[in-house]
Design a protein around this nucleic acid. Structure first.
Lengths: 351, 351
DNA sequence: TTGAAAGCGCTAACAG
DNA sequence: CTGTTAGCGCTTTCAA
């Protein structure tokens, strides 16, 4: 049971195979130099197999100055369901190339000193590179010591200096969402936006307008109501927009929570979804989108993809292959069709 | 920028302070033996400070045969929002004691071979102990090699052999939920249960009946409808129970998703929550519970607490202090009051 | 085709 | 009080 009981090492294998430790090392690591006879190779291999040999990655790391560990510091890992997908993406990409993730949580509200300490802890563990992730798309001030190893920002861009990063294509996602509505035949489409000044708020708004304009509609004149980015905010914004003159026949919502509020507003007004009102969300929060009735058609945030892309490129950088440019990489937000979209009732307006 | 440029080591500090590396080691690690003069101590300290010395935890680990790393293998980390809270709890508890988390994801549906390989990867990294977590309470067959280091199951219990583990007190949580309804004055309470044969289904059912019986009601006769544990299932079960003869004035739901379905069923029947029908959920999935209107009163799953408790006890075991018994530890599910509970309308039944 | 030797950066007896 | 001496388990010249 106890860990260090007496693990079999390279030496034991050497002894059992009747060769030197050096040879064992050469065989087991497929060293590019050092030719070893096939006979010796198999002798070593079977001895290792038989003794149940497993390498001590710590020792390998110390000697080779490469730990094979990627640090992942995530801001507010517990506040959204997205953390798991970023970690999963990074984990799978890392493992495919022999690396392992070391995860540390940090608070988005903590001072810069504490965040430097978090990175420092990873550095002491000799991580080969660091992934710095936030749980919603924002611009962060990267800790000063982050540049001591290759590093990539996930779901965030840095103020000033050049860190490579990967973020969702907010504008593109919004365009995708609006196009779903356009293709269904809607021409009067409203947008329930967030009030916060973050990249997603601005990106989704411009994507919304672009899509309308590209379709020959007057993007600048389309109704937009902003409110808090939660269900209550969505309810309020939707109520305002739906009670206005010539209310839209379809709503694009900043996120799924706001869409949930829009559902309530619609119900209150006796509007049935999607017959009287079509709705598209953003985020693809399974818990909400799939639980709503009817199911919410939305656009997914590429958390898995961002984690995987970042880990993969980070490893490239670590291994000396050309790493990513120090600029943000945009990942697409794919549509997820459910049941909240249908064609407009008759004219161009609901009700 | 590059990692291994030429990190300052214990030797550089020794040189700068005019002492031996041994002395530096003793000072910096506050070794229990070895008395060192205060003068030397501060000399060493300031030299270390000045050179920006940071220990190489890999080397320390190799020498001391203690890595200070806790492995966390989580089954299906991305399928629920709970992963983040378990990780956060474990991370904070671990860091408070100088440990760091190494996270690996594994698939609940993967074969035993693949799960052993996952544990093996952690073992090669010389983790001091392993936390094996699932994202919903279940009984798992622990990988065979998990016992090679101290290990604790999180949100799961093992078939057969004795692993320590920590799980939510399902029955207690259900009692808490029902008592909220009881205290509000309800006497006819229905239960919307899950159909799967998992610990939470059975535990919550028995807690439901216990609470009623303890209150002098006939727990055995209370209405229970089982369905799939999602919004649709909740809608169906609630519809059945609410359309029955003498429908209950309050509903306890297996989880928040089913509660969401119950909201829809109530709306369809013209029942207003909480005036005509009180509802209590289970899980405290913020996304749903806080977004529903009115806000859902529920009972929280102790993911953060399970992660923290497990990491803390695992470290005890690693450090030779008495570790946890090889049996499941139950953690309470605290109530979270929102706005879905009120007193019954007049008689004992709604409508 | 193989092995001896020299460490990676640090800790821990044991001497002095 | 402090320094010497050995390694932890492995990789990597370099020589045989």
């Amino acid at each position: 049971m106890k860990a260090g009981s007496r693990a079999v090492g390279i030496k034991d294998v050497a002894l059992a195979a009747g060769v030197s430790a050096t040879t064992v090392s050469h065989v087991l690591s497929d060293a590019a130099y050092a030719r070893i006879s096939p006979a010796t190779r198999s002798k070593v291999r079977s001895a290792a197999e038989q003794l149940g040999y497993g390498p001590n990655r710590l020792a390998q790391a110390l000697r080779s100055r490469r730990s094979g560990i990627l640090g992942l510091v995530s801001e507010d890992i517990a506040t959204t369901p997205h953390a798991g997908r970023i970690i999963l993406g990074a984990d799978e990409a890392a493992r495919a190339r022999g690396y392992t993730l070391m995860v540390i949580n940090t608070s988005g509200t903590a001072g810069p000193g504490s965040r430097e300490a978090d990175v420092e802890a990873l550095l002491e563990r000799q991580v080969d590179g660091i992934l710095y992730a936030t749980m919603f798309h924002r611009v962060v001030e990267a800790p000063g010591n982050l540049a001591k190893v290759p590093a990539i920002l996930v779901d965030a861009v840095s103020t000033g200096q050049g860190f490579a990063s990967v973020v969702p294509d907010e504008a593109g996602g919004a365009r995708t969402a609006v196009e779903i509505l356009l293709h269904a035949g809607h021409t009067r489409i409203g947008f329930l936006n967030n009030t916060e000044d973050v990249p997603s708020t601005n990106g989704r708004l411009s994507g919304f307008r672009d899509a309308l304009t590209s379709a020959g509609l007057d993007g600048g004149a389309a109704p937009v109501e902003a409110a808090a980015s939660d269900a209550q905010g969505g309810y309020e914004a939707a109520s305002r927009i739906l009670r206005g003159a010539a209310p839209p026949s379809a709503l694009f919502c900043y996120n799924d929570r706001m869409a949930m509020g829009a559902y309530r507003a619609a119900a209150e007004l006796g509007l049935s979804i999607p017959a009287d009102l079509s709705v598209v969300g953003f985020d693809n929060q399974e818990l909400i989108a799939a639980s709503l009735y009817p199911g919410l058609t939305t656009v997914a945030l590429p958390h898995y993809g961002m984690g995987a892309w970042a880990a993969d490129r980070l490893i490239d950088a670590v291994e000396g292959k050309p790493g990513p440019e120090p600029m943000p990489m945009l990942l697409a937000c794919p549509p997820v069709a459910r049941a909240s979209v249908a064609g407009p009732r008759s004219g161009a307006s609901a009700r």
